[in-house]
Amino acid sequence: EDAAEQLPPVLPDGPREENLQLVSELKDSSGSCAVDVSTVWWEADGCRELRVVTASESSVSLWEPLAHDCWGKVHTWQLGEIPVIQIIPLPDTCNLVCIALGELEIGEIRLLLYSSEADSFKHSLVKTGNIKAVVGIKDQRLVSSSRTLQEQQVEMVLLSEMGSKDWQTLMPPEETVTAFAEVEGMREALVGTTAANSIVVWSVNLKTGQLLRKMNAGYSYPASICHRAYSDSGLLFVVLSHPHAKESESCGNLAFRVVAFNPKTGRSRGVTFSSLPPGCVGRQVLEAGYLEGDVWDTSGAAVLTSGAVAVWDLLQGRCVAVLPPGPAGHWALARWALGTGLLAGRHDGTVCLYRY
């Protein structure tokens, strides 16, 4: 209630709740705690539609749109003893859901799918290990970094409805990779952030996996996590967040920043800085691997420690909408739905779809 008072729905000259319009609500009757939410394209009976995927620790559910902005559960995959900790979005992929399971870190990646041959839903193991970072990229590819005591492995795998195939090793940097992001419009380019605050650029095709360049992400900022990257006019623009920043540090109440890198020289310059909305106390919660924040195109969203959800226009460096915590409780999850929607989830398993 205190947090709700600190964040009135309409902040003077600030972000407005009206920028987000509630479209529908998915209520999970099982009462299980929501861990993650995502969207997936699903094709059935010759019809392709956008479906919502919700995850609890022990199961993952697929929801289809019904009439009157309602949603119905189509199927629930029951998982084993290892808790589900994340849904890994797979852009431009149909009828496939990828999930990460583990305790504190990812120990297993699984593919959830519908087999038309067997007319049944099933799941298959993609990878096990001490997995530090994972991302789904276009053309049904999954890239992950994992660590043994001796070395770090960075791998790309091609996913299909039959499971995983065609593994390609990427050259690992010396430091642990903390996050990956594909480069929009460049099918063979991938960027990553490392524990030593570097930006790494790879060439990802099924032939080489070269490490092209390592650049510093900025000496004044603590460990950066990459969310998205775009190549334009010979520069590489990377959206970064700083999950471990403290308000007293130089980056203040920074949520996201967009940095332009010149990959030829390794030099960089900050382009826009997106701060927490006015009137908001406490840092945002953004953790790599267990993302409480999300970036789509040039929009950022994150759950704040106050229990509100904030949305930023990252190109303008401006907070454009705030969803205050309601009487039903604090927000726990904020994810962009494919298209222009935002999915916001509460701990009780309720997920709300907003039009943005």
């Binding site: 060439s203 070269q210 092209l212 190549s231 010979g234 990959p263 030829k264 020289t265 030099r267």
Partner: peptide, 23 residues
Amino acid sequence: CSESDLGPISLNWFEELSAEAPP
């Protein structure tokens, strides 16, 4: 961003770095 900030910019940076990097 100006070129003086970031050094000489190449539109073909990806191809050029791919050709320079060890296979």
